[in-house]
Amino acid sequence: MTARTTTGDAGATTVPAATLALGDDALVLAQRLGEWAGGAPVLEEEVALANIALDLLGQARVLLSLVGDEDELAYLREERAFRNCQLVEQPNGDFAHTIARQLYFSTYQHLLYRRLAAGDSPLAGLAAKAVKEVAYHQDHAEHWTLRLGDGTEESHRRMQAACDALWRYTGELFQPLDGLDLDTEAMERAWLDSVTAVLGRATLTVPPGPRTGAWSAGAGRQGLHTESFGRMLAEMQHLHRSHPGASW
C-alpha cells in the first residue's frame, strides 16, 4: 500500500524521532486491538474495537509515511527499532485490561493531539484531525470503565486489577519527545486529574504504586520492549516477510 498524503504546509517532517514514536504507538495499539477480532465479548464491542484500531492504523500510516516507507517501517524493522511506549504493547488480557489500556492511552493521546493541533509542528494537521477521532476512543473507554468498575463484584475486581497492572507503564507517556515542544509536566498533571476523576466515578481506587519503575517499564521509546512484544511483531510481520513484494 502507498499513502500519498499532505498534512499541511510542511511536506517532510523535521521531527523524525517523535513522529516515529507516535506512529509506532498507533500502529502497535491498532495491532493489539485487531487481535480481538472474532473474540470480543459482544458483537458491538467487536465492531467498536476494530473501528478504534482502524482509526489508529490510519494515524500510523500518515505518521510513518512522514518518516519513510510505511510498509518497510511496519514490517521489516526488528523489535529494538520500534519506538512505541510499552503501554500499547501490553497483551490484551481480559476485557478489563484492554479497557484500562484504552483509558490510559486515549486520555494521553487526546491531551497530546490537542496540544499538537494548536502548535505549528509538521504534525499539527494530522493532530487536528485525529484529536476528534480520539475523543470518541476516550469516551468509549471512560464509559466501559464506569460500567465495569461500578458493575458487579466480579467486574469491579477485574477492572481494579487491570488498572493496577498497567499503572506502571503510564509514567513513560510523559517523557519528553525529541523535537516536540510540549509541556509534558502540564500534560501529566491533566492526565492524572482526568484519570483520577474517572476512576473515582467508577468506584475504583487510583493505584498506589509508582508509575514508572522496575527495569522493564519505561524504556519503549529507547527500543527496549517487554517480553510479549516480540511475539506480537512476529505475527504482524510474518506474512509480509514470507511473501516479499506480494500484492493482490
Binding site: A3, T5, T6, T7, G8, G125, L126, A128, K129, K132
Partner: peptide, 10 residues
C-alpha cells in the same frame, strides 16, 4: 489524487 488532512473534515 492527493489526500489532504488540513483543515480537518467535519
Amino acid at each position: 489524487v492527493v489526500t489532504v488532512l488540513s483543515p480537518a473534515w467535519s
